[in-house]
Design a protein around this nucleic acid. Structure first.
Lengths: 320, 320
DNA sequence: TTGAAAGCGCTAACAC
DNA sequence: GTGTTAGCGCTTTCAA
């Protein structure tokens, strides 16, 4: 026994499938009486619309693709959460795709297009082939958290955040501050470092930046720093995720250093321990991206824009 | 200009749509030469299969629904991560649905059925109406993390975990241990409390259990405990999430108490601070659920079963 | 080895 | 107001 279809309901009501369809859509040219009967019968029979068929016929879909590289990264899961709420209220579903690398690749796009998504929110910057494909397929796309030359993007004020963090650590008495960035390929990693370096130079200090790459992880970097001659007494980390790893490594070695993170994920995921970090309004960050996306889905053809989300410092003092 | 379809490719190749379809599916009755031409042309034209249409025709889909109440809960996002990897390798997509409550309701199922999911992994226990609907729609379903009478479920050894936690806290010198549970409606919350109470009684101690409800949160509970006459010197919390909230509250009040959590989310999300917790193999937990689901999708009609995932204690000592 | 036709479930256009 | 017809893009069946 298969799923109940329009036809089944039509047969039970003694009318045509078309009539049932329009009654359920609340079309104006169907009599109130018919609408009533149809709805009751559909309900009783447990009819549920096949939205794939509906989408095929209507030529649109109601699903948005989200592309990231791992939901283990709390930044992605938290942002995904905020988008979920908004999307649900707009009647969209929400399909999560994983890329195998830190960029959005052609094969990711193939999957997304194939799944019939009507738009894409990508946490990863599309590489060249992926960009071509997205353009060719006319897939409305917003890059969230990374810069993108060809697509709309919504990014944090990373340079500003880096400045805030560096200023804060110096204002608290640090005499040397190092920056521990993520991969160099991530513009946000570079930008935060740029803001940091800017402040360091302004204070007459030598910036000391480290980046994750094929041969180094946050763990190896912090070990290297601890073995170096000129040890900084404070560390600005790419994000809270990295900062917690660094704190863990420090505590295991019994070393005390001031550490500042980025993202204020503690706001959503209560952790023990107060750590200075850079925060922002995540719901509004998510909504900025979605609003852009909806504009594109509705056919906006204007040039790609980059919106910048303001950030602020979150310290023990300002907590609560 | 719309998306490239089979027809378009067919026209370009000078053969029929059918032929293209079968060439791309690598059907045995298409000549190698044709296959070659078709594939090259399809590639050049940027053809991407419309899997909605394909699914409609074939009567199946390649998407699995995941139902939870919030990705802010790291348990859900971490488990979702582990499922994502396995699902991807099996060629499934992955649609996330949010329920508005802590149970899985009829309207959630409507959405999931409508979206054409071929199976459901629910982190939430279906209520009665939802259960009826799932059965009526013959939706293959596995409940993950909660018990369910009518559906397959894969749960942790919650009672055992509660015992381990209580035993551990007592072995470390605690003279009174309280349990801070989540909602009573969650069987896992009750079960962890049951294991805990069991051990307490065996030690001749009075169990002291608190549960979140309409009028209380983890915060209010910990405040109540701190104001009570007979203050326990150790706390067993429903999960790490709760435990971190409790630790935070304690630290703000300058109170020292041993706290034990559940889930070992630090394994995936490195946090600062070592806290005893109850851990388990999350990949295998996720895979148990998915394997059950695949059995059902493939047509297994046997009675609903409950699988139990073993747990163990994670303490500073074993954290190497 | 390939093509033509039918139909998955739905809705838009038009006829009555 | 309601029914009939056609067709979204694909795959299956059957004929050539």
């Amino acid at each position: 026994m298969k799923r109940i279809t329009l036809k089944d309901v039509a047969k039970a009501c003694g009318c045509s499938a078309n009539c049932v369809s329009r009654a359920l859509m609340d079309a104006p040219d169907i009599s109130a009486a018919t609408k009533h009967t149809v709805r009751r019968t559909a309900e009783e029979m447990g009819y549920v619309i096949n939205s794939q068929a509906s989408a095929l016929r209507k030529g649109n879909s109601n699903s948005i693709a989200i592309l990231c590289d791992s939901l283990l990264n709390p930044f992605y899961s938290v942002m995904t959460h905020y988008m979920q709420s908004t999307l649900k209220s707009r009647g969209y579903n929400f399909v999560t795709f994983y890329s195998e690398r830190e960029t959005c690749e052609e094969k990711d796009i193939r999957q997304i297009v194939s799944a019939g998504a009507s738009g894409l929110i990508s946490f990863l910057a599309p590489d060249q082939k992926a960009s071509q494909m997205l353009t060719k397929q006319k897939m409305p796309t917003v890059v969230l958290g990374r810069k993108s030359p060809c697509f709309d993007s919504v990014v944090l004020d990373n340079v500003g955040g880096g400045r805030l963090a560096a200023e804060y650590l110096l204002s608290r008495g640090a005499t040397g501050v190092a920056y521990i960035g993520d991969h160099r390929e991530m513009d946000c990693s570079l930008d935060r470092g740029e803001g940091y370096a800017d402040v360091m130079k302004r204070h007459g200090l030598q910036p000391q930046s480290y980046f994750v790459d094929r041969n180094s992880t946050f763990q190896t970097i912090i070990r290297d720093i601890l073995q170096s001659e000129t040890q900084p007494d404070a560390l600005f980390c790419f994000n809270d995720f990295a900062a917690y790893i660094v704190l863990q490594e420090l505590s295991e070695r019994g070393v005390q250093k001031a550490v500042c993170g980025f993202d204020d994920i503690r706001k959503e995921l209560s952790f023990y321990g107060k750590m200075p970090t850079v925060g922002y309004d995540k719901q509004s960050f998510a909504d900025k991206a979605l609003n852009r996306l909806f504009l594109r889905i509705e056919g906006d053809k204007s040039q790609a824009v980059t919106e910048i989300q303001p950030v602020w410092l979150v310290t023990e003092q300002c907590a609560e």
